[in-house]
């Protein structure tokens, strides 16, 4: 079956001339959780807003389940939900009213049982009769999520859902996302907490200055681009490495008491035993060893910087 969401050659220039999206191509599969990563101002919100109909694209097109989001907006929007980045809420309405309003707005018949389920899932049930302005920021964020779920979307966008929220809400949010995934909802989230993407997302896309620079499965991205780090705690302090080890990229740390070695995650099986053998031959003994995989965060930072370096080269 075709992708649930497909973005083709999408370009956005804002009225001021800012080129926020540069021929973006992206396909999101049914039922997957996709994390869109990128530094501030990269175009994440713009991309989501174009898909949801809040920003008009300059060129290119977006299909949701094969329907064009501009021409067939009634179909595509009916099945799309959005939790915006900012806390845009009404003030005087009650939680119950605002969530029920959202359902009606999307053209659905009232369904109090569904609204109740959503409010309970988000720990909002006790607050249902409270005016929104009396709620804390975290609670308002929950209300926005409840509003986005009121019309039972198949495709849900979460624009930085956990930016600046407390630990408890983050945990609830993760649980909710898991639950939605089980019911078959496709989720696209943007986040600053890369740990979150690492933990939740099936695939990750990295966007920078309006361009998607990498899209890959989270695990394979970490495997391909991730590095492993081996640390050996030496029995005797060394001041200098023997020249015979020059062809290994080794560094001394902690005043010569630790030897660090970093290598591509894929080469682990080949190079670690070889290195250890070599050290033994050199008579270098160690008391302890540990390995660590680089995080998605490190990969992300590296990717974004690599791009930056290229840009500098191009412009200079």
């Amino acid at each position: 079956m075709a992708a649930l969401l497909s973005i083709e050659n999408l370009d956005k220039r804002y009225a001021g001339g800012l080129h926020a999206l540069k021929s973006v191509d992206l396909a999101i599969e049914r039922g997957e959780i996709f994390a869109l990563l990128g530094p501030n101002g990269a175009g994440k919100t713009t991309l989501i807003n174009v898909i949801c109909g809040i920003v008009t694209p300059s060129s290119g097109r977006v299909l949701v389940d094969g329907h064009d989001t501009v021409r067939d907006f009634r179909i595509t929007r009916r099945h799309t939900g959005l939790v915006p980045q900012e806390l845009y809420t009404d003030m005087f309405e009650t939680v119950w009213d605002t969530v029920s309003f959202s359902r009606g707005l999307f053209g659905l018949k009232p369904d109090p049982a569904h609204i109740e389920r959503v409010l309970r899932d988000l720990s909002l049930w006790e607050k249902r009769d409270n005016a929104i302005m009396t709620l804390s920021g975290g609670m308002k964020r929950r209300v926005l999520i409840a509003k986005a779920l009121a019309h039972e979307p198949k495709l849900l966008f979460l624009d930085e859902p956990t930016a600046g929220v407390d630990v408890e809400l983050r945990r609830d949010m993760w649980r909710l996302i898991e639950k939605l995934r089980e019911t078959g909802v496709t989720i696209v989230l943007t986040t600053h907490y890369i740990e979150e993407a690492e933990r939740m997302a099936d695939r990750v896309g990295v966007i920078r200055r309006g361009e998607i620079i990498v899209v890959d499965e989270t695990a394979s991205l970490m495997k391909k681009l991730g590095r492993k780090h081996l640390s050996l705690h030496l029995q005797e302090t060394m001041t200098k490495l023997p020249a015979s080890l020059d062809d290994w990229s080794l560094t001394l740390a902690e005043g010569g008491r630790r030897l660090d070695y970093s290598f591509a995650a894929e080469e682990e099986h080949a190079c670690v035993p070889a290195l250890l053998k070599r050290l033994q031959a050199e008579g270098i003994e160690f008391t302890n060893l540990n390995t660590r995989q680089s995080t998605l965060e490190e990969i992300f930072v590296e990717l974004v910087h690599e791009e930056e370096d290229q840009q500098v080269e191009e412009t200079s």
């Binding site: 009634r74 959005l82 845009y88 003030m91 707005l105």
Partner: peptide, 14 residues
């Protein structure tokens, strides 16, 4: 002004 227009613009309402 308050930003809540996002929901109306993203709804299947012409």
């Amino acid at each position: 002004f308050s930003g809540t227009i996002y929901e109306i613009l993203s709804a299947p309402v012409s």
